[in-house]
Design a binder for these strands. Structure first.
Length: 177
DNA sequence: TAGGCCATCTGGTCCT
DNA sequence: AGGACCAGATGGCCTA
């Protein structure tokens, strides 16, 4: 995977037509984009979606533009909140690359494995190795285990512990050095 | 330079 | 009706 060191990206927002000077690098980039676009589209088809959407509300162009800008702003805020949540998640899961930012997919995958391994540890402890869970009535370890096995099948936690143990070990090594 | 990751825009759909 | 949510499109930045 890759390291991410870039800062906040400068966004060309509404005024896309505002950039007029184009370096050769940029031109090449545009060509690349076009090719990429063509590959994705697989042909040109004019959709009637936008016109149908426009017909739905009898707003003036200005109104429509204004509403669009407002909902863009809301969407931006929503995505920022989502990214904050991702960042919070990154901070609570131990991982090897303390200096480099985990990608979103890496964060989710690691978090999933982390939860699995913690669940396994809890199950192991409550299954005879954890005195507090024995003979106290209430939530027994076996109940927990039954519930876990119903959802994940038998022996799933062994594997998840293995899967996650390597990153955790690496993390603890790097944090102690 | 290709490809991965990301932010943003956009229109459709769902929910309150 | 309006906001939240979602997925597709687009384009910028970065690394191998």
């Amino acid at each position: 995977m890759k390291t991410k060191t870039k800062g906040k990206k400068q966004r060309l927002t509404v005024d896309k037509e505002a950039f007029s000077e184009e370096s050769t690098v940029r031109k090449k980039e545009l060509v690349k984009r076009l090719q990429h676009k063509e590959r994705r589209k697989g042909g040109s088809k004019e959709s009637s979606k936008s016109t149908a959407a426009r017909a739905k509300h009898a707003w003036s162009n200005t109104d429509r533009r204004l509403r669009r800008l407002e909902s863009n702003e809301r969407e931006r805020q929503r995505m920022h909140k989502l990214n904050n949540a991702f960042q919070a998640l990154r901070e609570v899961i131990p991982h090897v690359r303390a200096d480099n930012k985990l990608s979103k997919i890496e964060t989710l995958t690691l978090a999933k494995n982390y939860i699995k391994s913690l669940t396994s540890i809890i199950l192991n402890m409550s299954n005879g190795h954890f005195p507090a869970a024995e003979g106290t009535g209430g939530t027994s370890g076996s109940k927990l285990q039954q519930q876990y096995q119903q959802q994940h099948g038998d022996g799933g936690h062994e594997e998840s512990v293995k899967k996650y143990s390597m990153p955790i070990q690496s993390f603890s090594q790097s944090s102690h050095s």
